[in-house]
């Protein structure tokens, strides 16, 4: 049983922090029971109640330390890690960064982030298809991010499952690349509905693919009329200044409850 959050989770994701070697074991006991007559129990509880409580706890931690926490979500291969690499290098003099990498297996992404000199934790979810607030809580305890920093959480590449799990982030950023279909927003509406910013990556490939910038925005606005867009190419660097500007604006205004 974990003393901090009382967790008795059945899943046991692996968390590795760059430059440290450690393990975190959980064990749990099942209680006894006695025979009784039938009782009706009015539970009235959200299924994700536990996750949402831990997410609020994370959010409180971020707010108290004035940390901008961003949850980056996308399908696999849209360029989340490349976008992070660019950002961490280009803006290293302006922000103190921390990164959580979520993948089913391997530390490949964390290794790429570590190479930029940024403190990173890799969470391997094993068979899990998303990060949850509980994993973030434990990663935060290991990483101890400093005040006024920017904390990126790169979720597992998956446009479906991570949508339902609040991690305690201030903003959810969905990334889509022009090599994917422009109808992605209505095929996976939950993710676009819960995001505040949409980054459209790989714009250098636009001449070669049948992707309509107008259409993708139109579809996305049907799901979420207030969604913001930033078009970038991590290869050519085009548009990245707008993304960096967005980060600056978000860090200027402290998050309010």
């Amino acid at each position: 049983m974990c003393a901090t959050c009382g967790c008795d989770s059945h899943s046991s994701p692996t968390i590795r922090v760059s430059g440290e070697s450690q393990s975190h074991d959980h064990s749990h006991d099942h209680g006894h029971s006695h025979s009784h007559t039938k009782t009706v129990v009015e539970v009235e509880k959200d299924v994700l109640h536990e996750n949402n409580l831990l997410a609020q706890r994370n959010r409180g931690y971020f707010e108290a330390k004035k940390i901008l926490a961003l949850n980056l979500v996308s399908s696999p291969g849209s360029g989340k890690t490349s976008l992070l690499e660019k950002t961490l290098i280009d803006c290293k003099d302006e922000f103190q960064f921390y990164v959580i990498e979520g993948d089913q297996q391997t530390t490949r992404d964390a290794d790429r982030i570590h190479a930029t000199g940024t403190k990173v934790a890799q969470i391997n979810t094993g068979k899990g298809c998303h990060l949850d607030a509980h994993m973030i809580l434990h990663a935060l305890q290991s990483m101890k991010p400093k005040e006024n920093s920017v904390f990126f959480i790169e979720n597992v590449g998956n446009l479906v499952c991570p949508a339902m799990f609040d991690l305690g982030e201030q903003e959810r950023v969905v990334i889509i690349s022009v090599t994917e279909g422009d109808d992605k927003p209505i095929k996976y509406p939950d993710m676009f509905h819960s995001s505040t910013l949409c980054i459209i990556n790989k714009t250098d490939l636009l001449p070669y693919v049948p992707f309509s910038m107008d259409k993708v925005k139109e579809y996305a606005r049907q799901v979420n009329p207030t969604l913001e867009f930033i078009e970038v190419s991590c290869t050519s660097g085009e548009g990245l200044d707008r993304w960096y500007q967005w980060l600056k604006e978000k860090t200027k205004v402290p998050a309010e409850a």
């Binding site: 025979s35 009784h36 039938k38 009706v40 129990v41 009015e42 539970v43 009235e44």
Partner: peptide, 10 residues
């Protein structure tokens, strides 16, 4: 909504 509304236990 996605909730556990009630249980009957014995």
């Amino acid at each position: 909504e996605f909730r556990v509304k009630s249980l009957v236990v014995s």
